[in-house]
Write a protein that binds this DNA or RNA. Structure first.
Lengths: 191, 191
DNA sequence: GTCTATAAAGCGATAGAC
DNA sequence: GTCTATCGCTTTATAGAC
């Protein structure tokens, strides 16, 4: 009887950690998210943090980005690639991002990193995230009747509008800008 | 004959300093722009920098933001408010921002700060910059025939699209996204 | 006006006790 | 697995020589 609970939540706690880390990175950026702030947000000291993430802050950000990428892959990108009902998938995408970004109160971590100092270190996953978003959306648009070229242009416009709406919402401290932009985008995508 | 050149370029050099500082802030963000990087970019040691900007990094960023704001005020916002030819002013705005942002190779410092850790410290000038941009553009759109409400919505969409295009261009490391977005925007604004 | 030296604080990361 | 203590480095900012 050395330990009362032999292996209780070893990787479970770790998984629960990533969303907390994500919010710290979102709120303060990659360089602004100091280990002190991360300790405050998670309640874990540096010892525990380095136990979970031997690679330090960089590994934390990489895993958070991978988790975000995975969420979008299953909840947004994959449905867009499903040939069943492309227009319904596009509507679901709009509804999904509105929820994910908390109607404009949450910022996109991938965009934050793209504009920050650590951009080069995360260039590959950042580019991949947006590339796959655009490709999946373009496929749905093409299936809904657009030409390949028009679908690609409109998908790029959609991804860029979502990012811009999040930037402007934060810059003007007015979250309502985001749902307004999504409504505008909806008529452009489904007209 | 104490000094050969009594007062040669005292404030002139200072004015020439701001664009250099702006590029450092753009490339590395506010927190990423260390005094070491600023020294490297300007060739001035800390002594000189603090001589010009006693308030340190914060004052540097404030003055850079003010200079950018001034440039947009005279070159973009004021022409938009001119009742003479609103459609020509909108076209001039599009051409002006394409040049200013180096066809997508330059990022918007105001947007970078809005997404960064220092957002709260510069909240007022950041909000003001985008608010005046939207107001000036909405006025031109209204004069070109739109209703007040439609002009406001379309102006917000335009400002947000420009920011999003800059984010996506950097994220995907593809500057051409920016001129493409401006072309798309042109038909939305002048259709 | 520009420099070097230095202060004081914060940073990421490591070591080792428990 | 979590903690504290600490290392080594970088940061912003100041002081003072020139």
């Amino acid at each position: 009887m050395k330990t009362p609970r032999p292996t209780t939540k070893p990787t479970t706690d770790r998984a629960a950690l990533l969303p907390l880390l994500g919010e710290v990175f979102r709120a303060h950026g990659y360089e602004g998210a100091s280990l002190a702030l991360i300790t405050e947000a998670t309640g874990l000291g540096k010892g525990s943090l380095y136990h979970f993430f031997p690679g330090g802050k960089k590994q934390m950000a990489q895993e958070v980005l991978a988790e975000i990428d995975g969420w979008f892959e299953t909840n947004i990108f994959a449905p867009l690639r499903d040939p069943a009902d492309p227009r319904a998938a596009i509507e679901a995408m709009l509804a999904g991002v509105e929820t994910y970004f908390r109607s404009g109160n949450r910022v996109c971590l991938v965009g934050v990193i793209a504009l920050g100092h650590a951009r080069d270190e995360f260039a590959a996953p950042v580019n991949d995230y947006f590339a796959r978003w655009q490709d999946a959306l373009a496929e749905a648009l093409r299936r809904s009747g657009l030409s390949v070229a028009a679908a690609r242009r409109r998908a790029e416009d959609a991804v860029l509008s979502i990012q811009g709406a999040l930037v402007l919402a934060r810059a003007r401290d007015d979250a309502k800008i985001f749902p307004r932009a999504l409504a505008e985008l909806k008529v452009r995508l489904l007209a």
